[in-house]
């Protein structure tokens, strides 16, 4: 585990390629073929963020604070919305599968996408904001007991290993 508290990240859309970060970085972490900072090399000194004229580099923590508590009543209500949006995505997908019209398929694809985004955002507000939260870990752990033969346990194992939990 990293001992430092923060690291630099680059927003590629904002980066204006003035490259001052390359000159000030003491470890070479800012110069990579992917455009993103090399997180293994970054020591979190913040010099690149201070030097960047475009404001494209920001410093983010390794450890995030505990996510906001949600009341059970709100979670239950949002889960009802979630259920409905997922069902609508499913209906739109079935219609998409059975449609032979190019234009109708395009429209249904937009409806599928829109409902998926609504479902994601709703479940986020229903207690799954932060991937490092206890909720996420408590969701993942029981999946290892899945009886489904094709269930990808290796994925869940790796996630539980690399994803930190910020609530004890």
């Amino acid at each position: 585990m990293k001992t430092q508290k923060i690291r630099a990240v680059r927003n590629l859309r904002l980066c204006s390629k003035d490259c001052l970060c390359l000159y000030v970085c003491p470890t070479g972490a800012t110069d990579t073929e992917t455009g993103q900072i090399d997180f293994q090399k970054c020591i979190g000194c913040g010099k690149c963020a201070m030097a960047c004229p475009a404001g494209a580099i920001s410093m983010v923590p390794y450890q995030y604070p505990k996510q906001q508590e949600k009341s059970n009543r709100v979670v239950q209500r949002l889960n009802t919305v979630l259920k409905s949006k997922v069902e609508q995505e499913h209906i739109a997908y079935q219609l998409y599968q059975n449609s032979s019209s190019q234009v109708e398929k395009q429209f249904l694809k937009a409806i599928i996408r829109s409902n998926r985004l609504l479902a994601e955002d709703t479940v986020r507000e229903a207690g799954y904001m932060l991937p490092q939260s206890r909720n996420t870990h408590e969701f993942l752990k029981p999946l290892l007991d899945s009886k489904e033969e094709d269930f990808p346990k290796d994925i869940v194992n790796e996630l539980l290993e690399i994803l930190e939990c910020n609530e004890s």
Partner: peptide, 17 residues
């Protein structure tokens, strides 16, 4: 379907970080 949306939400959360 709900599990899929929960996981794709967490995927986006990780992407943002």
């Amino acid at each position: 379907g709900e599990l899929s949306a929960l996981c794709s939400n967490l995927s986006r959360g990780c992407e943002k970080q």
